[in-house]
Simulated assay, not measured.
Amino acid sequence: METYRLGAMEMRFAQLIWNSAPVSSGELVKLCQRELGWKKSTTYTMLRRLCERGLFQNIGGVVSPLLTREEFAARQSEEFIEQTFHGSLPQFLAAFSTRKKLSEQEIDEIRRLIDGQRG
């Protein structure tokens, strides 16, 4: 299974791309220098790493996402539930709700999601 975990700086970098995409690699270098204090080489190293992991692409000097922020979050969630709860969403919800009581609104939203899956 591919891993969709990012370190803190990788996540900040990914957020910059998602917020700016599509963005030229030159503009991304300037953005990272301003926002993260990175040098050009650091930006390109990080970009190469995240492109190799299938999150972004750099074609013709234009950087764009291969996964939306939402798709990435969904894959992170799936991976966490798979590794921590052996893929059992009910076990995850049971563990989650023992520490945090779900509001009526949250319960209703979960019910709507489940009903939508029955389709």
Rank of each mutant, 00 (worst) to 15 (best):
Q76V: 00
T42A: 14
T43G: 12
G60V: 03
L6I: 06
G54Q: 14
L31S: 05
G60E: 04
L28S: 09
Q117F: 12
F96Q: 11
S77D: 03
R48K: 15
S41Y: 07
E79D: 07
C32K: 05
E70W: 01
C32E: 11
Q33F: 08
T45Q: 11
F96G: 11
M9I: 12
K101S: 09
K40V: 05
M9A: 08
R34L: 12
C51K: 14
L55S: 06
G37N: 09
K30M: 09
L36H: 10
E79N: 04
A95G: 08
D108Q: 15
L66W: 03
S88M: 06
R75N: 13
F85W: 05
F85T: 07
L89D: 02
R12E: 13
F96C: 10
C51A: 14
R99L: 11
C51H: 03
F56N: 08
R34H: 11
M1I: 13
P22Q: 09
G87E: 00
Y4I: 04
K100E: 09
E104A: 13
G61R: 04
Q33M: 05
K39V: 10
S25Y: 00
L36G: 12
R112T: 03
K39I: 05
T68A: 08
R5E: 14
A95P: 05
G60L: 03
L50H: 03
Y44S: 00
E79M: 10
Q91H: 09
E78R: 14
Q15W: 02
S20M: 06
A73D: 11
D108Y: 07
V62D: 01
E2Q: 14
G87P: 10
P90E: 05
L102A: 11
Q76S: 09
W38E: 08
I17D: 00
F56L: 15
I110P: 04
M9K: 14
I110M: 14
W38I: 01
F72Q: 05
Q76T: 08
A8Y: 04
E78W: 10
F13H: 06
R34D: 14
L89G: 02
D108T: 12
S77A: 15
